[in-house]
């Protein structure tokens, strides 16, 4: 369609672009620029070349934060995506499961901070629900200081993450299953295939495209995890749950090292972009079965 006047399209795009440019585009570029400087946020800028980047690769806490986030991402692929897939399989195999679908999805609605505060109580070593529950069923020896023990803290955060997001991935897979033509499934049933076989041999392969997107979402979202970690441990104990984002915030806001923080942010952005790029490469190679 040809616009009335040559400039009207720009008028339509302008408000959106203005907000987007001021709030995101310009800061993205400026963050990149700042990453080559030393700046405390108010004084003069000092150009430092790649010094911040070199420092980042020698910063043991920063480097280890990527290992932590890797563990978290692997755990959440299992606890969120795989659990979501299994749940979706379960709730779509039988009638009368609306209640479960609604229940499993509830945590997705709530602010992560609220959930984190709630779970910090559940895991509280002195009056928490979990340790009290273990006592009640005679498993007192299993009691732990869940968030204060380097062996369990990261895992506990991953499990909470699974508690929240398994329902989300369930909803995605459920919607995917719902779009599989019914006659395919029905004819398999008539051939005597059990629900598990139908799930494994038919449903799962048929939602492959969705699975791939779900994993990408889980990975790129997982690398950026902040709210949960900030509230539950803020990187502790002894930096064993430090993730790139929590360290970034400490560097910029506690230590006032804006330039260095910007370099850490750029590295994180590049990592996320690389994951996305790598992923789309891999996906192109696999056959495209899309619905």
């Amino acid at each position: 369609m040809k616009p009335n006047r040559g400039w009207t399209p720009y008028l339509f795009v302008l408000p959106a672009f203005a907000v987007f440019a001021i709030s995101i585009l310009l800061p993205v570029i400026a963050t990149f620029g700042l990453s080559f400087t030393r700046w405390d946020g108010s004084g003069p800028l000092k150009f430092k070349g790649f010094a911040n980047y070199i420092r980042a690769f020698h910063d043991s806490v920063y480097v280890s934060s990527y290992w932590h986030v890797l563990v978290y991402v692997v755990a959440t692929i299992i606890l969120e995506v795989l659990a979501g897939l299994l749940l979706a399989g379960a709730v779509s195999a039988r009638p009368g499961t609306t209640f479960y679908r609604v229940a499993f999805f509830v945590p997705v609605m709530l602010p992560l901070v609220v959930i984190a505060v709630l779970w910090s109580f559940v895991l509280n070593p002195d009056f928490g629900l979990l340790n009290a529950g273990l006592d009640a069923v005679g498993l007192s020896s299993w009691k732990r200081v869940w968030l204060g023990d380097p062996n369990t803290a990261l895992l506990a955060i991953s499990v909470i993450s699974g508690w929240i997001f398994a329902g989300f991935y369930m909803a995605i897979f459920y919607a995917g299953f719902a779009r599989i033509p019914k006659d395919i499934i029905e004819s398999a049933r008539l051939d005597g295939a059990g629900e598990w076989t139908i799930f494994r041999r038919m449903k799962v392969p048929l939602v492959r495209g969705i699975t791939e997107i779900a994993i990408l979402l889980c990975v790129t979202g997982g690398v950026q995890v902040f709210d949960l970690v900030f509230v539950l441990t803020n990187g502790g104990p002894y930096n064993t749950t430090e993730v790139p984002t929590t360290y970034l915030v400490k560097t910029v806001f506690r230590d006032q090292e804006v330039g260095y923080g910007a370099a850490l942010a750029v590295i994180l952005t590049v990592v996320i972009a690389l994951i996305g790029l790598l992923y789309s490469r891999l996906r192109r190679k696999t056959a495209d079965v899309e619905f």
Partner: peptide, 12 residues
């Protein structure tokens, strides 16, 4: 010292 030393806040 309490086991929970590193997981609870000063107030707790």
């Amino acid at each position: 010292i309490n086991d929970s030393v590193n997981s609870v806040s000063d107030n707790e």
